[in-house]
Write a protein that binds this DNA or RNA. Sequence first.
DNA 1: GACATGACGGCAG
DNA 2: CCTGCCGCCATGT
Length: 117
Amino acid sequence: MFRKTSGNFFKDVYEVVALIPRGRVTTYGAIAQYLGSKQSARMVGWALHQEGCKAYYPAHRVVNKQGLLTGKHFFAETQSMESLLALEGVLVQNDQLQNFENLFWDPCQELNYWPLD
DNA sequence: GACATGACGGCAG
DNA sequence: CCTGCCGCCATGT
């Protein structure tokens, strides 16, 4: 289940993102850590770029460690991250998540799995 | 097959 | 406090 990166990195990212509860958000680093490679946060963002812009899954719930919407630029204006998040009750101001630490959803914690690290 | 790049993050200077 | 570099993995040229 917790298979490491074996070409399924995208799949794993997709899987984790899909598990993000509505109205909550997570970070690239958190997902990367959950996948066992906390240092490959870049890959997470890259993975989202592959399928994220298609709006097939809530990529808008994934932000950077600062709670900043770094990827909003890749969303269509009609479905901007801010709007989508706002619909879920998540307040965003100037690309910055409000009350971010309270909305933060850590897969390692919520999924009851802690990497051996 | 090699080099450059990307929605990041942590640490060093 | 701010700037810069390295690491990580997969994709594109």
